[in-house]
């Protein structure tokens, strides 16, 4: 587990920064909720007039006057985008950074198998995602308590579970990319996360593009759907888990055979 602890130590500053930003934005969003709730009539009217724009963000199907509805849309975007970009960042850097910074030669001439390198690095990625979300959950609960809200535990947990799954899927796919690239992996990873986000917006706007929801983790981590259904769409999730597994498997296969130049 030496490499696993090393990974956590190497990533701690980035984790602190990202956790601080995501949790800080969540806190700000929740703390302004009471003011938003007071203006809710005007806000709801405004959203109703926005047509497809509201549909793109799922705001046409959600009650913005309730805390969970507000939390789902506003905080869901922060968790989805912020958490998703963090997941893309750590996932895509995990293997590629060793080649980019020329430390792969140092690492792989130690008695550690490449499978073990991939496994320990992936575990490091998962733990960093878990740590970011733990901070996000704690800050969200505390902020909700400060504004006098008691979010329904089941829906609150469901939203966080969906966004954690989304982050794991993005991280896993980017982890696969990381095994193929020695340079530019972070750019590709962040680009993929953005692409997934926009695919979901397109799917929300057009019925003909609904199939895109299968391809993007934002398809099953859509707050409006989650609150409406009271659960995650199992079909979208199944495809997402398959894509995540493919990413990790590709990383194992590719890294095993890769020439370290």
């Amino acid at each position: 587990m030496t490499l696993f602890y090393h990974e956590l130590k190497q990533g701690r500053l980035a984790l602190l920064i990202w956790s601080g930003i995501v949790a800080g934005m969540l806190a700000v969003c929740i703390l302004i909720y009471p003011e938003m709730a007071r203006q809710m009539e005007e806000v709801s009217g405004m959203f109703a007039e926005m047509g497809s724009f509201s549909a793109a963000f799922g705001m046409d199907r959600i009650n913005f006057g309730e805390f969970i509805g507000f939390f789902g849309v506003e905080c869901g975007n922060i968790l989805g985008l912020g958490g998703g970009f963090f997941a893309a960042f750590v996932g895509s850097a995990a293997l590629a950074k060793e080649e980019k910074e020329h430390t792969a030669e140092f690492l792989l001439t130690h008695p550690i198998s490449r499978q073990s390198v991939v496994l320990q690095k992936f575990m490091g990625v998962l733990l960093q995602i878990a740590a970011l979300n733990l901070v996000a959950v704690c800050v969200s609960v505390l902020s909700a308590l400060v504004v006098g809200e008691r979010p329904e535990p089941k829906l609150f947990s469901l939203l966080f579970a969906a966004y954690i799954l989304l982050q794991i899927e993005i991280a896993s796919i980017c982890f696969g990319v990381s095994a193929f690239c020695s340079r530019g992996a972070s750019g590709i990873g962040l680009g993929l996360a953005a692409l997934f986000y926009f695919l979901n917006l397109i799917a929300n706007l057009s019925e003909g593009a609904e199939f895109l929801k299968y391809l993007t983790p934002f398809g099953y981590a859509e707050s409006a759907d989650l609150i409406e259904r009271g659960g995650i769409n199992p079909q979208y999730l199944a495809v997402g888990l398959l894509l995540a597994a493919a990413g990790v498997l590709l990383a194992f296969v590719r890294y095993q055979r890769k020439d370290i130049l």
Partner: peptide
């Protein structure tokens, strides 16, 4: 085996 590469790169 102990290995010393031509260009020594470590975690900065």
């Amino acid at each position: 085996i102990g290995y010393m590469p031509s260009e020594a790169s470590f975690y900065p």
